[in-house]
Write a protein that binds this DNA or RNA. Structure first.
Length: 230
DNA sequence: GATTGATCATGC
DNA sequence: GCATGATCAATC
């Protein structure tokens, strides 16, 4: 895809085929090349711009902006995720999925959860480049449109149900990132002073750090490996 | 080197 | 504070 046609197609993708074609057209570009053609400044590091790569790809692919708890392409049923990988194809970070609800969760089913919704169909965009490589020099990899296999869906559901049961039983303080086979619960907050309500051990209300669901590295590594190395 | 808890920017 | 986008960095 030439740069000219890229700019002509900067609108929202009309369908899945168009979205995939755009994503594939970005493979091989450096983030600097993409940023320059979008008129976006390139940070020297990501310390103060942790979401820069994700936002750059959102802009390039025409994802809906905003802070709604929805998929990036609701009309296509697709969630967009950039994932940093090393030269072996191994993810360098866990993958944030969504904030965990801590109150009013009785009766919440997996099928109706944000985690299930967002993971039902993900467009993965691998970003090749370790921390020692400046953001602008990192490379965009081949995209992968993924839907969980039956086995993957079972693992995700089991972890989600186990974690949510503990939360509903007032045991959130006992949960750490080691719980879960493929999904983990960790703090997701502005800082350690940002607090939100949760259910306490005695069924009372306590203040605690907001938490988020993250995919563990081994899970995303296997997911990428199955597609790219079989 | 991998992991887990902490943190950064932004809009509303 | 909560939602989006995540990575940082102290500790194991």
């Amino acid at each position: 895809m030439s740069h000219h046609t890229f700019f002509q197609s900067m609108s929202r993708p009309a369908n899945l085929v168009e979205l995939l074609a755009r994503a594939e057209g970005l493979a091989g570009w450096s983030l600097r090349e993409l940023a320059e053609h979008l008129g976006v400044a390139v940070p020297e590091n990501l310390r103060r711009d942790k979401g820069w790569i994700g936002q750059l790809l959102e802009l390039a692919l025409g994802a809906s902006a905003g802070s709604k708890p929805e998929q990036d392409f609701p009309e296509l049923g697709v969630e967009l995720k950039t994932i940093p990988i090393d030269r072996q194809g191994k993810p360098l970070e866990t993958t944030f999925i969504s904030v965990a609800p801590l109150m009013g969760i009785s009766g919440l089913r997996w099928e109706d959860s944000n985690v299930c919704n967002k993971l039902s169909c993900v467009l993965w965009i691998p970003i090749l480049g370790e921390r020692s490589i400046a953001p602008g020099e990192r490379m965009i990899g081949q995209p992968l449109l993924w839907r969980p296999s039956a086995q993957e869906a079972t693992l995700l559901r089991q972890d989600w149900e186990e974690i949510m049961e503990l939360i509903s039983l007032g045991q959130i303080q006992t949960i750490n990132a080691r719980l879960g086979q493929v999904l983990q619960l960790r703090p997701k907050a502005a800082n350690s002073k940002a607090l939100t309500q949760a259910i306490g051990p005695n069924g009372d209300i306590i203040m605690t750090l907001p938490r988020g669901f993250y995919l563990k590295i081994d899970f995303t590594r296997a997911l990428l490996a199955q597609h790219f190395m079989l």
